[in-house]
């Protein structure tokens, strides 16, 4: 095997690309969970976002319209989840699973006629002389717009949850919905909005996969990215900046794993391809083993449905 074939600069630049889908989806789920709702349908919303974005981009020739379609599709699927869990008081775990099962089938159905098509290219941004800088230029100043947008999203969510009134209301609703209700906050409305936001983020993450990362449509192409995003939220202890770090760590593992395959490591491809999932499990174990700490950082009302009595 030839390790010199792996260029560290290209590796870092591409790990940011690899991390962006799970970062976007994870950020959405973080907000949802902060509001006290557990939406296990991330995988389903991602793949529906992936296929919708791809279809619109391939039809119109404009990748940015495709991204908007991804957002809309993810939010639309999330609206079903909101209807089930917030209005019809259905079990959140089961509803999330339903979303994933439905999304996988729906995307396969819609995507049939788009297999094997190349989507319109999304140009990377350039910043004049900055892009020509030796190492940093390639890593920091030559990415596509969504890489920057995803980092901006982390900053925005962090600031919003921490320093704005509406962000604090959301956290209050997630920590203790009965108290929040008693204070006059609209628990259900806050949660529905959070769920829609989470769906939009997951949809965009899926769109990023099919439009930029891969870029192609294949059935079941998210391959567990939604579940990894869910695990990432636990890994990050529900903190935005840690989520960014975690996403880039996973991006690094995925990219490295591909590079090792390409470099001809003498391990069958299947075992290398297992590594992201195994490492996700390992990380989950480490993060949740400290009972006191993990129960402190999880939102208090996570996964419990709210029904105002009387």
């Amino acid at each position: 095997m030839d390790l010199s074939a792996i260029n560290p600069v290209v590796l870092i630049a591409s790990l940011m690309v690899a991390a962006t889908p799970i970062l976007l989806a994870g950020m959405g789920e973080l907000v949802v969970e902060k509001s006290g709702v557990l939406n296990l349908g991330v995988e389903g919303m991602m793949i529906v976002g992936a296929v919708s974005g791809f279809a619109v981009a391939a039809t119109t020739g404009n990748p940015y319209l495709g991204m908007l379609a991804s957002i809309a599709a993810g939010a639309a699927l999330a609206a079903i989840f909101a209807l089930l869990t917030q209005v019809l008081m259905a079990n959140q775990v089961a509803s999330g699973l339903a979303l994933t099962l439905f999304g996988l089938g729906f995307s396969a159905l819609v995507g049939q006629s788009y297999v094997g098509i190349v989507p319109p290219r999304t140009e990377k941004l350039t910043f004049g002389p900055l892009t020509d800088l030796p190492v940093l230029g390639r890593i920091l100043f030559n990415q596509d717009i969504l890489v920057y947008a995803s980092i901006a999203l982390v900053a925005a969510v962090w600031y919003w949850l921490r320093a704005t009134r509406s962000g604090r209301v959301l956290r209050a609703v997630g920590e203790n919905h009965d108290s929040a209700h008693a204070l006059g906050y609209k628990v259900r409305r806050v949660r529905v909005l959070a769920i829609l936001f989470g769906g939009a983020c997951a949809g965009l993450g899926g769109g990023y996969l099919s439009l930029i990362r891969v870029p192609q449509w294949t059935e079941g192409m998210t391959a567990g990215a939604g579940w990894i995003a869910l695990a990432l939220v636990v890994f990050a202890s529900w903190r935005p900046w840690r989520l960014l770090g975690g996403a880039y760590l996973f991006g690094g593992i995925m990219v490295l794993q591909f590079n090792l395959q390409a470099a001809g490591l003498r391990i069958p491809v299947e075992y290398l391809a297992m590594s992201p999932y195994l490492i996700t499990i390992l990380v989950l174990v480490v993060m949740s083993s400290n009972r006191a700490r993990s129960s402190l950082s999880a939102p208090g009302s996570l996964g419990r449905s709210f029904h105002a009595a009387g």
């Binding site: 099962l101 089938g105 729906f106 396969a108 159905l109 049939q112 059935e219």
Partner: peptide, 9 residues
């Protein structure tokens, strides 16, 4: 075939 999966969902 995927339509059946949608149906089950």
């Amino acid at each position: 075939g995927a339509a059946i999966q949608v149906f089950q969902g």
